[in-house]
Design a protein around this nucleic acid. Sequence first.
DNA 1: CCTATATTCAACCACATGGTTGAATTACAG
DNA 2: CTGTAATTCAACCATGTGGTTGAATATAGG
Lengths: 122, 122
Amino acid sequence: MVELQSLQMNSVFHALGDATRRRMLRDLAGGERTVGQLAEPFAISLAAASKHIKALESAGLIRREVRGRTHVCRLDPGPLASAHEWLNFYERFWTNRLDALDRLLREEDARQSPKSKKGDDK
Amino acid sequence: MVELQSLQMNSVFHALGDATRRRMLRDLAGGERTVGQLAEPFAISLAAASKHIKALESAGLIRREVRGRTHVCRLDPGPLASAHEWLNFYERFWTNRLDALDRLLREEDARQSPKSKKGDDK
DNA sequence: CCTATATTCAACCACATGGTTGAATTACAG
DNA sequence: CTGTAATTCAACCATGTGGTTGAATATAGG
């Protein structure tokens, strides 16, 4: 199971926290798209779109292949699946209401930064 | 099925994009927690923790009950389940690689802001 | 070569975020 | 009442984010 560390979780969820980027992902679900194609639906500059794409890329949500002068992007399944797994944990909690999950929580804790003060991953 | 609008999606994913808040959610999965209890694991001020909790609250991820002078927080299943559903859509795409999902995508589009320029939901 | 196309880079700006501290609020306990 | 405990509020600060514009960097095509 692909588990993201705290840092990657941050960037993945941050990337998803913007409607423009979610829309880009949605378009990419239809197949490969160039930077220009991804930018087209929005009333923003290409430079701005480029930044969004970089955010998606550095979160690992998409990958880029430079073909000549165009950059072709496509979805990368890994990280989103991990975010999904993360949420899945909580969904299990909610649907089952099992307090025995408390142990699982502590395991997840041990896997990550041992003393998770704010700023440890900055 | 509980579907979030773009604005709520933003706040939910934004709330999840911070390790401190994710940790708070995790603690809340163990049961009710007061503000002070939620703040305890972190080396931040109570005021800072209070802001984080407000972020979780306004994203609808937790609810607060004021009992005397203490504020008791608990998880609210709804929004996270919706975020989960959202990711689930993409997971289906990745695992199945069905381009027929394109139609579903357009439906989701119709449900949201029709001309989704950046800034529509600011 | 020259020129147009696709994309990024760099500098800048307004505003949001996450943190601080100190004062204000509210409620419980003598 | 008064003091203390739990929490928020307000003002402030540094940094990050999302946007802009104009120049730079390829690359493709006459």
